[in-house]
Structures are given as C-alpha cells and as structure tokens.
C-alpha cells in the first residue's frame, strides 16, 4: 500500500509537469489549431535562459524566473510572426512542417551555442520532502501540482470570461467572422502565443527544479507528451489537457511500478489508443458530427 501510494505520488509529480506543459500547448493548439512541435523547444530556451542568468550572471531566482518567461514570450511571439502567420491560410500540414523546422532550428542553435552536453541546473529550494508514514512527497511535486491546478483554473476563467479570452474563442471558431466582428485577429493570436509561451517558461522552471539537467534536446519528449495530452483531452479543452497529463503520468508510474518497466511506453500508448477508441473526440471533448 505504501509502495502503491509512493508510486502514485511519483506519477502525480511527472503528471503535473506534463499537465503544466500541456496547458500552454493547448492554448495554442485549441485556438490556432497548430500542432506546435516547437513548444517543447521554447521550454528548452527558457531553461537555458534561466541557467545562464542564474549561473553565469548570478541573478536571483525570482528575477530569473520572470526574465526567462519573458524570453520565452519574445521567442514565441517572434516565431509566430515569422514562421506561422504567413501560413495561416495554407493547409494545416504546412505549419506543422514549419513547426518541425523551428523545433530543429532551436535545438541546433542551442547545440551550437551551448554544446550537446547537458548543464546542471542550480538547486533552488532545499526544502525536505514531506513524509507521512512511509509516504514521501517532495516539495517540487507539491509545488508543481499546485501551480498546474492554479494556472488551469485561472486560464479557464480567462478564456471563458475575459474579453481577450472571448476573442480567442471567437478566433478559434471562425477567424473570418471574428475579424468582421471587430476582433483584432493578429493581436489575439499573438496574445495566445504569448500566454502559451509564458506557461512554457513557468513549465521550464519547474521541470528544471524537478530534473536539474538542461540539454538542447530536453524539450522533445515533454513536447510530444504535451501534444498527446492536448489532443486526448479534447482539442482546446484546458481541463481535459491537464487531466490527460496527470493520467499519463500516473499510468506511466503505475505501469513501471507494477507491470513492467521495459514495456511501459507500449502499455501507456496502448491505454491512450483504447481511450481514443472509446472517446474518439478526446476525453472531455464532445462528439462532434460534421454538419451535413
């Protein structure tokens, strides 16, 4: 039982990281319908920014956090303007390919700048894990779960209630109609990217605290997992993405803990496929029939 609880908590820890990155992913994915393969790499950029600021420039942690978020936002908005905006009317697969291109570009630029060797992330907190009986919960896990939940609630409120949020949803439904209704589409999409990338910046920080190693390819795996969470949660549904993020984390952890560490990836993907077979529009997505 203790073992099970410990593994469950391990799963929640990784799940919270997936969920956090998936939130930013879903913002962009839900509103622009872009499979942003570069999202994980934006996170990588944020991590390097943080390392350079904290280790090389000696900037204190809160300042570094804000600064690296700003770096992420700047990168995200610039990338959107240069690489995605011109392709808004092209088939979706075109922007998918540019996203792959941007992803490679960021990874290889980082490799040229910082080499392929991973760099250690400096320790930020030295708070001992919470222990209840035989169960221990690390501070980072608690923090990540909390931050992910808060951000999810906040973002959901923002998207549902605020003026900008409504504009975002309008753009998502029908870009042309939104424009006619006086929504500044370019501004709205830029804002979406800015928020998505700021979330990647926060995600980068928590990721690095949990796994203190920064490398050029570090964004690939979280990016992929976030993509899966965003689709499986139901396109554009923030709580769905977060839920799937947690489910993936827990499924991975429990599979590794009690089934097989070798086959865990296969088992987890298998679970995801089965979920999709029963919920073909995602876990929280409503079944949508094409109107005939």
């Amino acid at each position: 039982m203790v073992l099970f609880l410990n593994q469950l908590i391990n799963g929640l820890g990784t799940g919270a990281i997936y969920a956090l990155i998936a939130l930013g992913y879903t913002m962009v994915y839900g509103i622009v319908k872009l499979i942003n393969f570069a999202h994980g790499d934006i996170m990588m950029v944020g991590s390097y920014a943080a390392v350079v600021l904290m280790v090389n420039a000696g900037v204190p942690f809160p300042v570094a956090l804000v600064a690296s978020m700003l770096v992420c936002v700047a990168f995200g908005v610039a990338i959107e303007r240069v690489a995605y905006k011109p392709l808004r009317d092209a088939p979706r697969i075109c922007s998918l390919i540019t996203a792959i291109g941007v992803s490679y570009l960021l990874q290889n630029s980082a490799q040229l700048l910082f080499s392929a060797n991973p760099r250690p992330f400096p320790p930020v907190f030295s708070i001992p894990p919470l222990r209840i009986g035989g169960v221990s919960i690390s501070f980072v896990t608690l923090l990540t779960v909390l931050v992910a939940a808060l951000l999810m609630v906040g973002l959901n409120l923002f998207v549902m209630k605020s003026r900008t949020g409504k504009a975002m949803r309008a753009v998502s439904e029908d870009m042309g109609a939104a424009k006619l209704m006086g929504v500044n589409v370019n501004m709205t999409i830029s804002t979406t990217f800015a928020i998505g990338c700021a979330l990647a910046g926060i995600g980068a920080f928590l990721y690095c605290i949990a796994y203190p190693s920064v490398a050029p390819t570090m964004g690939a795996m979280p990016g992929l997992k976030a993509f899966i969470a965003a689709v499986l949660g139901g396109i554009g549904i923030l709580p769905g993405a977060m839920l799937v993020g947690f489910i993936m984390g827990v499924a991975e952890s429990l599979t590794k803990g009690f089934v097989s560490t070798q086959l865990s990836d296969a088992v987890v993907y298998g679970i995801l496929i089965v979920v999709l077979l029963f919920k073909p529009s995602g876990l929280l997505g409503r079944a949508q029939r094409e109107k005939v």
């Binding site: 073992l3 410990n6 593994q7 391990n10 799963g11 820890g13 990784t14 990721y207 949990a210 796994y211 190693s213 390819t217 570090m218 690939a220 795996m221 991975e252 952890s253 590794k256 803990g257 097989s260 560490t261 070798q262 865990s264 990836d265």
Partner: peptide, 20 residues
C-alpha cells in the same frame, strides 16, 4: 532490474521499486 526509456528524466518510479 529496472528499465527506463530514451530521454526519460524521471527515475523515481524505478528507484521507488528498488527502495522497496
């Protein structure tokens, strides 16, 4: 004997098994 996947960063699950 605990396996991990390529690019994994979380080894707590395996370590928890080993601890146990």
């Amino acid at each position: 004997e605990e396996a991990s996947a390529d690019k994994d960063v979380d080894y707590k699950t395996q370590l928890t098994n080993i601890k146990d």
